[in-house]
Design a protein around this nucleic acid. Structure first.
Length: 387
DNA sequence: TCTGGGGTCCTAGGACCC
DNA sequence: TCTGGGGTCCTAGGACCC
């Protein structure tokens, strides 16, 4: 049986939800910032009215407002989007045998059982229901492979539907620019263009051994994709949910940090957030990572430690240890991040009495913060950087 | 993750062991 | 003591995605 995969990609998802929720925003250019500070953030999403002025996701809001001064601004409200995303998932499950959520606004459906005509009909029906029930739109691509379905949905945005049978795939790919393939970003595009490879058709015609030699695994993957073939992992459905590989937090400060003490205080806070999330999710971590943007130079280091931990204080000390190993001559930090990797299920049994006591303390602090709101209780060292 | 912030995966070189 | 090959682990850094 031929595979028939549909990919639903919501159109300007965050912005559309905001417009659906607030009639005053409808029909207007809208910028959704990833955080509340209007001029110190980037565009998480924007309405099609804003896109018409050249605004795009990932752009700094300063640039976005230069292009479109009249745009409305709201800060992202992820709880709202997650809720909508879950409801969309529930709707899709009613129409497809297998549904996989690929991100907050993207879904795959296996419609192989339906045949192509019926699959197309079902997708039209899904689009109608989404418009009626959510007052937003999504685009759907139908193809024999997940990655092709995804590209097909993108190609018909917004509010589009593109149906590709087995025999249509080659024609669809032939003239498609290589950078339209998800996974081929600016760097790979440039590399390929330098080799006079501009379209998927040209990529498909290139010797795979040559690509493997140039790009390693990525080369073979690009070649496969350009011929409309999913890599094996991608074709795997119903996979049990993978545990996260890392948990981290980062922050860009308004005013550059120029003292070690101030920097340490911020690391303390980020470590606190990371530790809290480790405990909530039930993980211990044995690899600590620290990155800094110091004097406009990006630095990152990670180090493996032999005792797994979920204690914020330990995460903090490890971050400091890594910081020392950087031997910074001057401190001039604009952004920094603390990440816990090497995750494993938390050790429930603490051997030493002192550790048991410490875990009880952390547990109590977590419960207080859960009940009375985040940051009800926090280490005194963080005091001076909290507003 | 580099004008935010959250991630994943891959590569390559060095250390170390047999 | 040096040379060689194979394998694993650790770490830095690049590229990409939403």
């Amino acid at each position: 049986m031929d595979r028939i995969i549909a990919h639903l990609d919501m159109d300007a998802f965050f912005a559309s939800i905001e417009q659906a929720a607030d009639p005053r925003l409808r029909g207007k250019p809208l910028i959704v910032g990833s955080r509340g500070k209007k001029y110190r953030t980037v565009v998480a999403a924007c309405s099609y009215e804003a896109k018409a002025h050249g605004v795009a996701s990932g752009m700094s809001t300063v640039e976005a407002f230069r292009l479109c001064p009249k745009a409305q601004f709201v800060s992202a409200d992820s709880a709202k989007y997650l809720y909508a995303s879950e409801r969309i998932l529930r709707l899709l499950v009613q129409h497809a045998d297998r549904v996989e959520q690929a991100s907050i606004d993207e879904f795959y459906m296996d419609l192989s059982r339906l045949g192509i005509t019926q699959a197309a009909y079902t997708c039209r029906r899904i689009k109608d229901r989404i418009r009626k029930e959510f007052s937003i739109t999504g685009s759907i691509g139908i193809a024999p492979a997940k990655i092709i379905a995804k590209m097909a949905a993108k190609a018909r945005k917004p509010d589009g539907l593109l149906v590709l049978g087995e025999k249509d795939v080659a024609a669809f790919l032939r003239e498609l620019a290589v950078e339209k393939v998800p996974g081929i970003g600016p760097r790979l595009k440039e590399h390929l263009n330098n080799l006079s490879i501009f379209t998927c058709g040209q990529l498909a015609g290139t010797d795979p051994a040559f690509l493997a030699d140039r790009f390693g695994k990525t080369g073979l993957w690009m070649w496969q994709t350009s011929r409309g073939i999913d890599s094996d992992e991608v074709d795997y459905w119903d996979a049990p949910e993978e545990p996260p590989k890392s948990i981290g937090h980062s922050y860009t400060v308004e005013h550059v940090l120029t003292t070690r003490t101030l920097l340490a205080n911020w690391l303390r806070m980020l470590s606190e957030m990371v530790g809290c999330r480790l405990r909530r999710k039930g993980f211990d971590s044995c690899v600590s990572c620290l990155w800094l943007n110091n004097n406009d130079e990006f630095l990152s280091r990670e180090k493996k430690f032999y005792s797994p931990t979920q204690d914020s204080e330990v995460i903090f000390r490890r971050s400091l240890h890594i910081l020392e190993s950087l031997r910074l001559k001057t401190v001039c930090v604009r952004a920094m991040g603390v990440t816990a990797a090497g995750l494993m299920p938390a050790q429930s049994l603490q051997l030493l009495a002192v550790d048991r006591k410490r875990m009880r303390l952390l547990g109590a602090v977590d419960r207080i913060n859960e009940r009375f709101g985040e940051w009800s209780v926090y280490p005194a060292a963080i005091q001076q950087i909290r507003k």
